[in-house]
């Protein structure tokens, strides 16, 4: 293709984005749009998959059968959400194996929140309430993202995810209405998860390298800071109902702006965890890689069986 032809295609593409048209896998797209989508969708998929790990540990320890079936269903949804997203990314020409390889080698990132440990049962409640709550805010904004397969996966995920947050909140509500010790456990979990949850929206806009282009291409529909503010404004009244205190002395209602002001986020901690030095980065990747490697023979055996069955069928016909 000549330079002029590419320029022409780029103009047509930008015009389609401006008209809010969806881009589908076989449509022409700038290479950078393709790459940004692969990066964002695959990281989102990795987050769903790694996100199962902190919760998986609690399935056998859930305090009742009701809690156990709910947690199992939630973790199963997360596996499903990972699969929807990997499929969406695959339409852009990257293979599933390539994405796994990027995750396992550390080349691709996943949400840093999953590098924190889930040490008490109250953490299951808090993860559902805050982590899934933050994820929902991100994902609702992404339902109108410009790449068709990603937007469709998001719509499905959003529909399924609201139970995740409600089951978490219900766990906390039960603890907060229980004994002093149970309420203290809920408070402790909030203390540990509040700031990492705010970090889930990513660096502040001024320091987010991808935001500007992603907004222009309607890959992202709201900025990190907008989404973070929305999360805080929505979550503070929910903490009040629980009767536990958000660990931020600077948090207060700003009547003029009609939103909450909040304290400084510890961005050094954020970058430490992103770079691999969080409390559980190594543990999470080890668990993920060993699951993949130890499952290798099963995948090979299933493939060999399918091929054998296929050959047998051909022979029978012949």
């Amino acid at each position: 293709m000549t330079e002029n032809e590419i320029k022409n295609l780029e103009e047509i593409f930008e015009a389609r984005i401006a008209r809010d048209e969806k881009i589908e896998p076989k449509d022409w797209m700038p290479e950078k749009y393709r790459k940004s989508n692969i990066r964002q969708i695959s990281q989102h998929a990795h987050s769903e998959v790694v996100g199962m790990l902190p919760e998986g540990n609690w399935i056998t320890r859930a305090p009742s059968l009701r809690r156990k079936v709910a947690l199992l269903a939630k973790v199963q949804d997360e596996a499903g959400h990972g699969l929807y997203l990997y499929s969406a990314a695959e339409t852009l020409g990257i293979s599933r194996e390539e994405m796994y390889e990027q995750l396992h080698s550390g080349k691709a990132k996943y949400s840093s929140i999953f590098n924190y440990p889930a040490v008490t049962w109250a953490d299951m409640g808090t993860i559902g309430w805050l982590v899934d709550g933050a994820a929902i805010i991100n994902q609702v904004a992404l339902c109108s993202t410009s790449f068709g397969p990603y937007a469709r996966a998001m719509v499905r995920i959003c529909k399924e995810e609201s139970f995740h947050q409600r089951q978490g909140y219900e766990i906390l509500l039960t603890l907060c209405r229980g004994t002093q010790e149970q309420k203290a456990m809920a408070q402790d979990a909030l203390n540990r998860w509040w700031w990492p949850s705010l970090m889930m929206f990513g660096p502040i806009d001024a320091e987010s390298p991808n935001t500007e282009q992603s907004m222009k291409w309607k890959l992202k529909r709201k900025t990190n800071d907008e989404l973070r503010q929305q999360f805080i404004d929505q979550t503070v009244p929910q903490a009040e109902i629980l009767g536990i205190t958000i660990p931020d002395p600077d948090l207060k209602w700003n009547e003029e702006k009609k939103q909450y002001d909040f304290g400084e986020i510890d961005w050094d901690e954020f970058w430490q965890v992103v770079k691999g030095h969080g409390p559980c980065n190594k543990e999470r990747m080890d668990a993920r890689v060993s699951a993949w490697e130890e499952g290798n023979w099963v995948r090979d055996a299933a493939m060999a069986y399918a091929e054998k069955q296929h050959d047998k069928k051909l022979k029978d016909v012949g």
Binding site: Y84, S87, R96, R152, A153, A302, M303, A306, Q309, H310
Partner: peptide, 11 residues
């Protein structure tokens, strides 16, 4: 509805 990986039609 979407896609997935499997070794054969049954799976």
């Amino acid at each position: 509805f979407g896609s997935l990986h499997a070794t054969d039609a049954v799976m």
